[in-house]
Write a protein that binds this DNA or RNA. Structure first.
Lengths: 140, 140
DNA sequence: TTCATTTTTGTAACCACTGCAAATATATAA
DNA sequence: TTATATATTTGCAGTGGTTACAAAAATGAA
């Protein structure tokens, strides 16, 4: 996924009915253009200098705002942290037990084709989480 | 899955090299024969009367022991709680956003057939989580 | 019985996350 | 511009699930 420009990101927020304040735009840009599935704390640490003042609460609130609006996904692949993914398309996640890194995986079809008996269920979210040792760690 | 008897459960623990104390066997029996994917707190509440004295710490430690031994799965489908599943076979989980209940779903094949590029990854665990509204809640 | 090891227990602490109210910034109206 | 209402941000305190730790109890070996 190519990097999104500020005007593009701003437009996305406005289309979702969210006013693009300085903090909101910075947080949105960081999550959308990051591929490391950051925690709220990581977003906070990455932006606090750039923004001068930033509250961790703002980061949490803003990310929740985006999740509720469907702009960002919240991941629970990590036992101890919420993680956030700006890529809302259908894909799976792999977490390395050794280095803790999280990688995207492409999927074939979607969850409908993997499951039996989902006809009566109104599914709003599907997450496929894998754990193990990544290729980099297994070489060492 | 039929209910497992005490002798069967006891044998499973011994085969895993785990000494079946009174607390361990009771916790193991409860998780293995439950289909509600209980939290540690739920296991504790269900067994404290039967066992006379029981510590919540013992429940947490014992469940972790079983998870590390591969006898029980830990689920992270719920945002706020660890949940435990005595059924370690490949299956997916559906969580109802309204009533909070968690249901098992059968899957076709396994994760290898759903994904691209898992050849270089040593996968030790795969979890497919779905969220939405269950059939019971959508009728009301 | 005696001693070492294992298991259980209760309390205190941890820490990611949230609630809340004050402070600040922004939009609207006059 | 000024005044007022609304929206957003901020910092701190609190919450609650989970874990660390050390003492107590149970178990096994000699």
């Amino acid at each position: 996924m190519r990097m999104l420009t500020r005007p593009e990101l701003k437009m996305q927020l406005q289309n979702a009915g969210i006013r693009p304040s300085v903090q909101r735009l910075a947080i949105y840009e960081y999550v959308k253009n990051s591929c490391e599935h950051p925690t709220a704390e990581a977003v906070y640490e990455a932006l606090r200098d750039e923004l001068g003042s930033l509250s961790l609460t703002t980061v949490y609130n803003t990310l929740k705002l985006y999740v509720d609006a469907g702009l960002v996904m919240m991941l629970h692949i990590d036992d101890n942290f919420q993680r956030f993914d700006g890529d809302t398309s259908v894909h799976a996640h792999f977490r390395c037990s050794l280095c803790g890194s999280i990688h995207d995986l492409s999927v074939k079809g979607d969850y409908h084709t993997w499951l039996c008996g989902v006809e009566n269920l109104a599914v709003t979210d599907a997450q496929l989480y894998l754990k193990g040792v990544c290729s980099k760690c297994s070489q060492q």
